[in-house]
Structure formats: C-alpha cells, structure tokens
Amino acid sequence: MNKTTARLGWLLASPYLIYSFIFFLFPLIWALYLAFTNWNLIAPDYETVGLQNFIEAFFSQSVRAAFWTTYKFMLMFVPIVVAGALFLALIIHSLPRLKGLFSVGYFLPYLASGVASAIVVKGVLSYNSPLNIFFRNHLGMDINWLDSPILAPLMIALMMAWKFVGYYALLFLSGLESIPKEIYEAAEMDGAVGWKRFWYVTIPMLYPSFYTVTILAVGLMFGIFTEPYVLTGGGPDYSTHTWQLEIYNQAFEKLNAGYGTAVAIINSIVTFASILVFRKILEKWGAKHGWE
C-alpha cells in the first residue's frame, strides 16, 4: 500500500472515526471515570469514591432484582419469540404470492412506538376492559394481569414478542429462502419428508438465522425499559425491575449519576458475559450440524 492510498483510507474512514470518538469512545472513558465518583452531574464539586459504587451495587436489592429479572424475561421471551418468528417465517415462506406484503405487515409492530404500544396493552389489561369483563362475566375469572409476580413479567414478555416477532421472522425468512432446493431434493431421495425433513434439514440449515435471532433476542433483554416503565414501574415486588429502570432511577430520578454509571458498567459486563455464553452454546450446536 503506498502512502497516498493509506492517506485516502484514513480520510475516508475519518468521519466514522470522529463520530465514534465523540459519541462512543469519549463517553465510555468519561463513564468509566464517573463510575468511581459520587458526582450527580450538577454539583460544582464531587469526590472520587473508589469502588464504593460497585460494592453498593453488588449488595443492592434492586440491582440483584434487575439481574434476575433479565434472565426471567429471557426465559419467557426468547423461546416465545424464536418459535413465533420461525412459525411466521414458515407460513410466509409457504405462501404462493404476496410474501412481501405479509412480511411488511408483520414487521409493522416493530416500528410502533414502545410507549404507545404499552399504553394500548395497559388499556387491554385494565380491570374494566372488554377482555376482563368477558373473563369475569362469562368464565368467572378475575385475573390481575399486572400485579402478579408471574403474570406481570409474562405480559411484558408477550408484548415484546408481539413487537419483535415480525422483525425476527424476516431474518428466518431470508434463511429459508437461501436453503438450496437441491438439499431438499437429496433429503427426499433419502426418505426425509414432512416432519423429518423439517427437523433434520430445515432447522440445521437455518443455523445462521437461529444464531442471529437468538443473540439479538438475548441482547435485547438487557435493554428493556419502556414496557415495564409504563406498565408496572418495575413492580410488583421488583418482579419487572430491569437494568435500564435501575439506571434511570439512580441517574435521573435520584441524581446518583456516579452510582448509576457503575450500575450501567456492571450491566455491560453482564450483557457481554451472557452473550458470550449463548454464543458458545449456539456455536456448539452449529458445529454438531457442520457449521464451523
């Protein structure tokens, strides 16, 4: 590479580098520093407090709740959304025409505002909604959807699954479209038809899509904010209290910016570690089916 080419490369890359420096690298370094202080962002002076913020976070009931709630959401959301997206993709894939139209239709909830969707869900689940009136009057069931430590997270997980299932279905659909017909023909000659064909051919061939969708879904669980903020405020008994709610409460409600940043850093580490574990599990599964 000659000097001119190298300079041109740097020049072309510079907008992204400058952007990353200003909006990612600099804030990251600043956050790392802030996490070791007791600054609230508005006081003229503050002190460095060493590891105190991290130690407090480690023993905090609400941080521990956020940690476990995330995995609880994951247990509910990931299987529902992966299975739902795959099912949807298979249906769209099997359509003789108008595939594009249906794909866009199912993708629309992804574009809807989280706040607006949450308010609609709140109305649907409210005590005097037609749904609950029907349950009470015809089935004799009075269900407290948002004040039960099991139902409240499940409702949030279902709502998020509704929002993301169309988007993930598009990823599965592209995976389905990319499976060569010859593979199915060969499998058929070997006697793999119907359920066997789906289980032993389609599913392993969709590994790249599974990988992408699962990692995206797992990562999403560490960033939940709007839905519990609008629907439950993190309750009941912290059962829907997430990392982002904790960070928001600390940094912007209680003005504990230093502590909030420490929680955010712990959140990043937990997110990174969890995704790494899921990656390893998925890669092991992929390797079993020839995806190295």
């Binding site: 109305g123 689940l125 409210s126 005590y127 005097n128 909604s129 407290n144 948002l146 004040d147």
Partner: peptide, 14 residues
C-alpha cells in the same frame, strides 16, 4: 380499594 389498572374508573362510576 381497586388497586388494578382501570380506564377512567371514576368517570365510568367503577
């Protein structure tokens, strides 16, 4: 006490 989400409960006389 009704401690559940309800839409306009006072206005609807719930």
């Amino acid at each position: 006490l009704l401690t559940r989400e309800a839409t306009d409960p006072f206005e609807n006389a719930t």
